[in-house]
Design a protein around this nucleic acid. Sequence first.
DNA 1: CTGAGTTACTTAATATATTAAGTAAAATCT
DNA 2: AGATTTTACTTAATATATTAAGTAACTCAG
Lengths: 157, 157
Amino acid sequence: MSASTPKDPSSRLLRDLTHSLPMALLRTREAVVQRFRIVLSRRGLTEQQWRILRALDGHKGLEISLLAEQCRILLPSMTGILRRMEQRGLVRRYANQADGRSIRVRLTETAQALVEEIKPEVVGVYAEIERILGQRKLEQLYALLEKLEAGLLEGQG
Amino acid sequence: MSASTPKDPSSRLLRDLTHSLPMALLRTREAVVQRFRIVLSRRGLTEQQWRILRALDGHKGLEISLLAEQCRILLPSMTGILRRMEQRGLVRRYANQADGRSIRVRLTETAQALVEEIKPEVVGVYAEIERILGQRKLEQLYALLEKLEAGLLEGQG
DNA sequence: CTGAGTTACTTAATATATTAAGTAAAATCT
DNA sequence: AGATTTTACTTAATATATTAAGTAACTCAG
């Protein structure tokens, strides 16, 4: 009866901003990423650059569009990021024999070494996260995130 | 025995990029936000501007720093966003009697109307999300996100 | 083989994010 | 009260995000 406690999630009212899903995802991601940023900024790397380093690590070369897809970075952003990374000697671009449009990118040895140097610290951050949530809940979180993403993409891929 | 299936989450190896937590949070948020963006871009609003509209809705005026905190937008970004919103007649700034430093912001009537117009569509997106995950799992997701965020902030607030 | 359509980028323009400085007003200390 | 520190912003500089166009290299139908 009390209209002053609108807790019904299926209500036609909007959730409090503090509890909106985009905000919740943003806040959590922000908290997580900040931990990584501490490690990365020491090496003058941005989070996006680290994503690229990680994606390229272990590959002999990836096409920019595949790389962009994996890192969830749009192509116009990739252009600039890769340009800066190339200038710092972290990546090298080379043409694709088979297809004159696509360009491949790979890590330089400097970058490889940098990745190996950073890895253990990043692993440390993951360990902290697992300590906070516990392995089971962490897996649960991954599962929920993936299910929601899949559902949304399917709904309007 | 098989070293080719490194599924141990506590391993000292890095997770596959596809399954890293920042990436999972980013991908899911991206999928969610895209739904909202469809609604918002029709009115020439960005996601951040919508966050501000939502936060100001129902308030007689909020200080910029409080607004920034609630919206998780840093002050330097707020300066520009509010300037653009003011130019479009969505918000108005006015001095704070009690404190010469702080500035308050409130919605114009135009903005109020806009919020009311958009709300039902946003509620529709939430309904879709709840349809995908189910109410129970959705609440579970919120709980996990909040717990992780709280743990991280506490660890080095 | 040719022209329409597609793909893999790059360029441009505008909006944010992030970090570091700068500024004026308040609060605090002495 | 005067000096110091803190607070609430703004400005600046650089890095990304987002959308729209532009370009050259492919694909494919006719």
